[in-house]
Amino acid sequence: MTRLVGRRLLIGLVTIWGVVSAVFVVIRLAPGDQATVALGPDATQEQLTALRHALGLDQPVLVQYLDYLGDVLTLDFGESYRYGRPAMDVVFGRFPATVTLTVTAALIAICCGLVLGVLAGRRPGSLVDRAVSTVALGLQAIPPFWVGIMFILVFALQLRLFPSAGGGTLGHLVLPAVTLAIPFTALVARITRGAVAETMTESFVRTARSKGLTETQVLGGHVLKNSLIPVVTVVGLQLGTLVGGAVVIETVFAWPGLGSMLVNAVENRDFALVQAATVLIAVCVIVLNLAADVVNARLDPRIRLEARR
């Protein structure tokens, strides 16, 4: 187990380095640098040169890259020139709101998705199965921003049940969390359905029945745990895209999180902020994947055996 975690951590560090470097490259490939955006179209050449010098943008790219790597290692992403505060502070200030939103959405999606998936997968081809599979496919195909806008129209503007924008109260959380949860629920339901349906055909399920267990006991005692392995893997991987989805949803609902801030930071070429936020998100995704691996190793003794080799 320790070796498994150690190896995955090492891979995680390499991945973070990759993300950090990719952010560095992409941000410099984008047209217009920080100085042009900050000073506006009326800036003189002297002003631009002075600001570029102050920001270190006149240095050779390799020097900039190494400086940047050093800063990342010490978690110093520099100052956000828009906020005038250290980028890490700004990012961490926004982080809890995003965590609240994604965790709520993930919990809704996992609970609903598991229940629907098990109900569908226990009897493949049944009416319940066909209903769940069709609805899940449909929900996965609808763009979340459209769902968000429809929710605002119906539940916020027409029915006035929930506030349409902003954050702070539980009421503010409902619409964005549900919007974000919908495609993820559909995904979890589909994966669970497939896994349960496949496990039901396994020989050991017949063995369980031969012991006189009821269908519920068979499902709870033998099918569920074995079906969870692919579900946990996919959920672990897809939680990352949930954060990506949060960027859009936060913008739709003006949710004061990392996502809406990141969109603004990219528009403003606020390098420090973009880098800090991206690295933080990358770290989260890697930690979540690691957690999924650990959970799976707990679920399946054969994975533990593999890790020992």
Binding site: E202, F204, R206, T207, K211, H222, N226, P301, R302
Partner: peptide, 30 residues
Amino acid sequence: VRGREIAVIFQDPLQALNPTQTVGRQIGEI
């Protein structure tokens, strides 16, 4: 009747045993 009056020994024990449960748990299930 299953298990308590008529029990079954299946063909391929690797397939017929649950891979995620200890053998003790599976034997002791009834």
